[in-house]
Design a protein around this nucleic acid. Sequence first.
DNA 1: TATGAATGAGTGTTCATTCAT
DNA 2: GATGAATGAACACTCATTCAT
Lengths: 207, 207, 207, 207
Amino acid sequence: MEEKKEIIRRAAVEVIAERGFHEATTRMIAERAGVAVGTLYNYFHTKEEILAHIVTEERSRRLAFLQRVRETDATAETKLREFLRMHFAQVGEDPLTVRTVLREFRFSEREELQPLMDYFREIPRVIAQILGEDIESPSGRLRGTALFGALQAFTLEMTIFPEEERPRPEDAIECLVDLFIHSRRSRANSTRTPGADPLQRWEEMDR
Amino acid sequence: MEEKKEIIRRAAVEVIAERGFHEATTRMIAERAGVAVGTLYNYFHTKEEILAHIVTEERSRRLAFLQRVRETDATAETKLREFLRMHFAQVGEDPLTVRTVLREFRFSEREELQPLMDYFREIPRVIAQILGEDIESPSGRLRGTALFGALQAFTLEMTIFPEEERPRPEDAIECLVDLFIHSRRSRANSTRTPGADPLQRWEEMDR
Amino acid sequence: MEEKKEIIRRAAVEVIAERGFHEATTRMIAERAGVAVGTLYNYFHTKEEILAHIVTEERSRRLAFLQRVRETDATAETKLREFLRMHFAQVGEDPLTVRTVLREFRFSEREELQPLMDYFREIPRVIAQILGEDIESPSGRLRGTALFGALQAFTLEMTIFPEEERPRPEDAIECLVDLFIHSRRSRANSTRTPGADPLQRWEEMDR
Amino acid sequence: MEEKKEIIRRAAVEVIAERGFHEATTRMIAERAGVAVGTLYNYFHTKEEILAHIVTEERSRRLAFLQRVRETDATAETKLREFLRMHFAQVGEDPLTVRTVLREFRFSEREELQPLMDYFREIPRVIAQILGEDIESPSGRLRGTALFGALQAFTLEMTIFPEEERPRPEDAIECLVDLFIHSRRSRANSTRTPGADPLQRWEEMDR
DNA sequence: TATGAATGAGTGTTCATTCAT
DNA sequence: GATGAATGAACACTCATTCAT
């Protein structure tokens, strides 16, 4: 019964999104999942592994977005819009998972989570590529970082604000396009040097 | 000897920056500070209060930045540059405190930290004001949020990346000015409606 | 395995009887019970709850004595003898529990023990009834209190004195009957006014 | 300044009467006394010693009662009345001290308090003497114990009951005289055998 | 003497993890 | 697989006691 693992993941996402990883006990997760505590350990070795699983799954999903967007042969603006659209759709569908990742992940020092940390560190570069920036130039990387940061800020607000205060995805998309695409028009074109492809590495990580 | 409180604060910042609040034990903090565990409790009522103290101090500093910048009668660009300059200077001087705040604060559900939570929620609005945006319009608020997010992303990188990968403050400033000021040139001028002043409230919080 | 709760109760009784509640650590109790500290908390929420459980159980037992005695339609002397006989039998069977209750209970300010406190405050009245005293008259209540006090003094001696110094139950009974029944002969008969029945309340407390 | 020791004793009595010995911290006692914590240790070696001092003082006072009563050449009834009168007067004057002794003392296992424990163990015998009982006979000792117990029960009620429920000393005296003197009328006179004088020992204890 | 900051052993309690059923 | 009672290391926090001032 492999769906039980999913039930547990879901329960963990809920409890961790509500209370944070450290405040979320295995007992709570088990109760929410409707199983005994011991059962958790049939599917995960440790509590940390549950968190790692949540983040890994989420990573795969995001990876798919990025992958699909890069395959398209379109303008930077189109690509960006498409990526943002998919991202916000995912936030809307499963805000708790997104919140959990945002909340617990960025700073973990756990050995086994380092590969995932590196993944997050890489995202700005991939985003820069989508923007059509030169990821080897400081400016290109900075813009990637800036977009990633702004995106996180929007995501966060969508995830923790009360319904009526949350930014609407369409507005967020327009805002980001405005900032990151239109602001560029006035600047000199940067030549795109491909360099090592950061996304590649992460596709391979999925077994 | 009131400097002992500062010694403890410093030790706590270090340990929490390294390991996170929950992984940081009172014993570790005491050891790092070179005092006995009990001594912590002569200066703080609980472990949480130590964190609250760290964040409050940091909040005061940031408040001072914002205050000073708003007092100036200058263009949005000048104000923004000045604010960013001060912010990054502070990051450079005390990266651990900044990291601690960034790391531990955004999601805390602790009752006593709620006022501070609200403060962080308010920052995007204040930033929007500095940008000269209309903080009552969705667009204005979104741009405030976006800048706050981008700023955090840079700050984070300056704080956890190895020396050579860290963005340079000057570059970060140029990037943000470019994004948030220049991109605006092409858009219609928005009228600035003052509205309730969010900063006001926080100044009063400092007694 | 519900007998484990009884094992823990027993261990707690022993340790608390020896050292007093405050000097009895959870570790000691666990050790005596032959379980891990954590196990205590599978059966009781707090250390205080263990004490409360001990006292409550004991209360039920005493309640049963009083109940049985009151049901009989007999002279005051017979009732008193019967009650004392049962009481001292219980003391002989489980002196440690009796000692624990005597030792720890009378002054506790703990919120959750207040109902039990009230119970102890009520006992003198019930005893007065058994004596056939008018519990509404000062004299009646005083005699109830006096008997309760004398009984406790005997109980205490039976419980902490070395074997050979302990009063013998038969002697104690004779002494008390002598004091509280025979001394009455010479006095004017007091009419017994029933009033609110204090025992009633406590029977209901047992669900 | 030897009166400071008395100030501390008084403060300790108050705090311990309110909260119990274990819940009374040295800080509380010091605060109540209006001195620094360290000052306590200029007058007492340990917290326990403060308690011991309280009890010892109280013991001396009671000893004086008993002493004075025994010196009189009067009937058992007169002696008893006099002793009770003095005892209840003292309860009225300083109920907190009485409460403290009643509350904390009877069970202490502390090495250094054993002599005092023995003293309390002896009291019933002295009381039996006042009653004119043969303290070598079981019956005599039992009656001493019974009176001591009844006396404690009254004292307790005077000490912890709300004003209006407290027994009045006159009533208590009548009740006890009634029980312990009048009940005796019907019984055979017991010859008084002096035996070792228990009081003697305690007079010597006072240096 | 008086102070009160510093101490650190010791407390009750939690909770991730195990394992016999 | 599923269970949940048992475990015990680890935690935040307390407080009697000390001692430099």
